[in-house]
Design a protein around this nucleic acid. Structure first.
Length: 540
RNA sequence: CGGGGCGUGGCGCAGUUUGGUAGCGCGCUUCCAUGGGGUGGAAGAGGUCGCACGUUCGAAUCGUGUCGCCCCGACCA
């Protein structure tokens, strides 16, 4: 039996912390029960597995226990709980403002796509056909043979409808009617919507059959203008990731293998998780004239010529929440950047009796009011039945950025204890100073989080030049970080590398980590000439 | 779709090999104390053991069928 490291609770007899979904079959559990197999260490009574021990379990349990989301029994989908949705709303608000600032407006298009639409763009069908949910009937009825509710065979649709896996096709079918003249361009529209992709395996926020996202769809008169739009939106995503999420990202272009089905080329932002894998956080596609041709969208130019428009599409999804969790959080729970955290400051009033409870509650409310007047999101935790210790842990789990403890002793000295979630530091502070400094405290946390994530990321960017070393680097469970290596530029080589090592090319970066990365070399697998290094990683 | 496995209070599980009428932990309810890092005690509520048929005096347990779910793989924002 393995001995437990100090400060870590190991669950031996129960095998798993209370409430933890094992996901194992009975036989598998008895294997774990046997003395030779390692147990899962649990970092707290709440039962989040240790991040370093099992990243995947840690992530899953954290998302559930922090109240962000849970698996639904329905159709392999996810339920986003209020805390998770509040986070999403904050993200939406910030993104939406950025879209508006770059000249876009919102609209909404149907979620049903006639099957024939999907087949108009050859690459597009090929990319999405394997994961479509299809509506075939429009009515149910009671079975005459008493088998209950059945699909009415007489209500079969002439043409099946696909639940949108992405909206290019419906939107371009609509744009055809909206665009006649160069005066109608550019058309800059965004949609907030849900999307269905029938994935075989779900991971909360990272891969679920239904997810929420935003998809921008624009039409332009020239290739160059569309290209500019693509890059503008990629930069909006980069800014959002860095300034709001405090997650540094690599901007770059996807290889042919990894680009969007139907795109001319795809730009992306790639983040690094704490288990040193890559996660695609957002994409921006230059669709060329592919969809314009497929849906026959033309415009008359100022010179009177009829031309097909150029298109872009770009999107980020609730996957950003997964990215946020994977980039920052720890064994105690979520660490959320103040700019996005649903609860920036939580007051935990501490009481000895009814009298002191009334006092600390009232004072907490008063101080919370002062902070709210500064635009800070504040909660006062007045749950009577929970102990202060429980609340401390609970809010650390939920990712409140700052905790203010206020007890009878503090009231006497007109001070409070201020605890920071990101560093874990805890110090007394005069009440007035706490109120005055709170915006700065929050801004500091935001800054520190980005710095810390940058350091982590930069410390895990490596250059590899031989195949032997490359293969070795990608052995094992987690990821090795971002591996900069030379590649001969062919899909064949990329495929062989990914089969052998599970490593994929995340992107060809716009800005090199070092100028030398853009010098020519030889492909790490084939030895053929390579123009520059590209980013390899294991991806989520 | 291939390969494994599991269905027992709200959640996590034991009990099945060797049939005897269901148990544990958490959660929940009420009360008392407690409250500055997951608080202690007491008393309660809650399950015809996925479903159907069969074997048996008797089935959570054995047999057959059926439904559902999970894990590994292919796919993937």
């Amino acid at each position: 039996m393995v001995s437990a490291p100090e400060g870590v609770v190991w669950h031996a007899s129960g095998l798993y912390p209370r409430g933890m979904r094992t996901g194992f079959a009975k036989g598998q559990i008895s294997l774990i029960q046997s003395p030779c197999v390692k147990l899962i260490p649990v970092s707290s009574k709440q039962g989040i597995p240790s991040r370093s021990e099992n990243y995947s379990d840690w992530y899953n349990e954290l998302v559930v226990r922090a109240g962000l989301a849970e698996h639904s029994a329905v159709a392999g989908c996810m339920v986003i709980k209020p805390h998770g949705y509040a986070l999403w709303e904050n993200m939406q608000r910030a993104l939406d403002d950025m879209f508006k600032a770059t000249g876009h407006v919102n609209a909404y298009f149907p979620m049903f796509i006639p099957k024939s639409f999907l087949s108009r763009e050859a690459e597009h069908v090929e990319g999405f056909a394997k994961e479509c949910a299809v509506v075939t009937h429009y009515r149910l009825k009671m079975d005459p043979n008493g088998k209950g509710l059945i699909v009415d065979p007489e209500a079969k649709l002439d043409e099946e409808l696909i639940l949108r896996p992405t909206s290019e096709t419906v939107i371009w079918n609509t744009y055809k009617k909206w665009i006649q003249s160069y005066r109608d361009l550019p058309l800059l529209i965004n949609q907030w919507a849900n999307i269905v992709r029938w994935e075989m395996r779900a991971r909360l926020f990272l891969r679920t059959r239904e997810f929420l996202w935003q998809e921008g769809h624009t039409a332009h008169a020239t290739y160059e203008e569309a290209e500019q739009e693509c890059l503008t939106m990629l930069d909006v995503y980069r800014q959002f990731a860095e300034d709001w999420m405090a997650v540094p990202v690599v901007c770059g272009v996807k290889t042919e293998n990894e680009k969007f089905a139907g795109a001319d080329h795809t730009y992306c932002i790639e983040a690094m998780t704490q288990d040193l894998r890559a996660i695609q956080a957002g994409t921006s596609h230059h669709l060329g004239q592919n969809f314009a041709k497929a849906f026959d969208v033309t415009f008359q130019s100022a010179e009177g010529k009829l031309e097909h428009v150029y298109a872009t599409s770009w999107g980020v999804s609730t996957r950003l929440i997964g990215t946020l969790v994977m980039a920052h959080s720890d064994d105690k729970g979520l660490i959320l950047p103040p700019k996005l955290a649903p609860v920036q400051v939580v007051f935990v009033p501490i009481a000895r009796d009814d009298a002191s409870r009334a006092l600390t509650y009232a004072e907490s409310d008063r101080l919370a009011g002062l902070l709210r007047a500064k635009g800070i999101r504040v909660t006062v935790d007045k749950r009577d039945k929970e102990s202060p210790g429980f609340k401390f842990n609970d809010w650390e789990l939920k990712g409140a950025c700052v905790r203010v403890e206020l007890g009878p002793r503090d009231l006497e000295s007109q001070s409070c204890i201020v605890a920071l979630r990101d560093t874990g530091s805890k110090a007394p502070m005069p009440l007035e100073a706490m109120v005055d400094d709170m915006p700065t405290i929050l801004a500091d946390i935001q800054g520190r989080m980005l710095e810390k994530a940058k350091e982590m990321r930069n410390a895990n960017v490596k250059r590899v030049d031989t195949w032997e070393e490359f293969e070795k680097t990608f052995e094992g469970e987690g990821g090795p970080g971002f591996i900069l290596a030379h590649w001969d530029g062919t899909s064949e080589t990329e495929n062989i590398i990914s089969e052998k090592t599970k490593a994929t090319i995340r992107c060809i970066p716009h800005v090199p980590f070092s100028p030398d990365d853009e010098l020519p070399g030889v492909c790490v697998l084939t030895g053929k000439p390579s123009q520059r290094r590209v980013v390899f990683a294991k991806a989520y």
